[in-house]
């Protein structure tokens, strides 16, 4: 729930990056931190394990400066993606104004994406938020991992090409993950494709709900 402090003329909004382990949530924040001008950002705070996996959350405050007389701040958080941290994700999601769901496009990660999205829907419901009207955008990350195929022979003798690994096609991901028709963006390592596009979309969605 966004906070508008009339006396200090400040607006605070909370955006949470959610998704399965190793999908690139922390990388999104690291890239944003590296690109946004110094005067518009605070320190990137990471509570991580010794192996640099997120333990609690990453936190990046972004100051958009004065807009129509109001100092506007976005607080960006990531949740820890690993399955065992489910309760920690509930804690970080508390009071969020918008969510970026970062999906890992790789074939072998499809089930993890589905599990994480289902968990997000349940957690939002537990916080009395309607997933249909709550601001959510999708980011299909790791688009640059090339798909690998193998030739298989079917029982009737015909040969068919089957994907064995790498990024799934966007329409396949849409089919499984985007039944709600959220805005979806493609992300990848090349110049951190899609990071700002995603951030612009979720920021505008949050502002529209103030």
């Amino acid at each position: 729930m966004a906070l508008i402090n009339v006396a200090r003329r400040e607006i605070h909004c909370k955006i949470v990056y959610y998704g399965p382990g190793m999908c690139g949530k922390t990388s999104n924040l690291q890239w944003i931190h590296g690109q946004v001008p110094a005067q518009a950002k605070g320190d990137l705070l990471s509570i991580a394990t010794e192996t640099e996996r997120t333990l609690f959350f990453d936190f990046l405050p972004i100051d958009l400066g004065k807009v129509r007389g109001f100092q506007t701040r976005f607080h960006l958080y990531t949740v820890p993606g690993q399955v065992l941290y489910e309760r920690t994700r509930v804690a970080v999601l508390n009071g969020a104004d918008g969510v970026v769901f970062v999906a890992d496009s790789q074939l072998e990660k499809l089930q993890e994406n589905l599990n994480s999205l289902k968990e997000l829907a349940q957690n939002l419901k537990n916080q009395n938020k309607k997933i249909t009207s709550f601001p959510i955008v999708l980011q299909y990350n790791k688009r640059d991992i090339p798909p690998q195929y193998e030739e298989v022979t079917l029982t009737d003798g015909t040969r068919k090409r089957r994907q064995t690994s790498g990024a799934l096609a966007v329409d396949v991901l849409d089919k499984y993950l985007n039944g709600a028709n959220w805005s979806a963006f493609r992300g990848g390592c090349a110049a951190r494709q899609g990071v700002f596009e995603t951030l612009r979309a979720i920021s505008k969605a949050v502002i529209s709900q103030l």
Binding site: M1, A2, L3, I4, N5, V6, A7, I11, D97, Q127, N128, K129, K130, S133, F134, P135, Q209, L210
Partner: peptide
């Protein structure tokens, strides 16, 4: 609008 999405507005007083 969904009441969960409305902001908390803290007035000057």
């Amino acid at each position: 609008m969904d009441p969960q999405l409305t902001s908390i507005i803290v007035p000057t007083e």
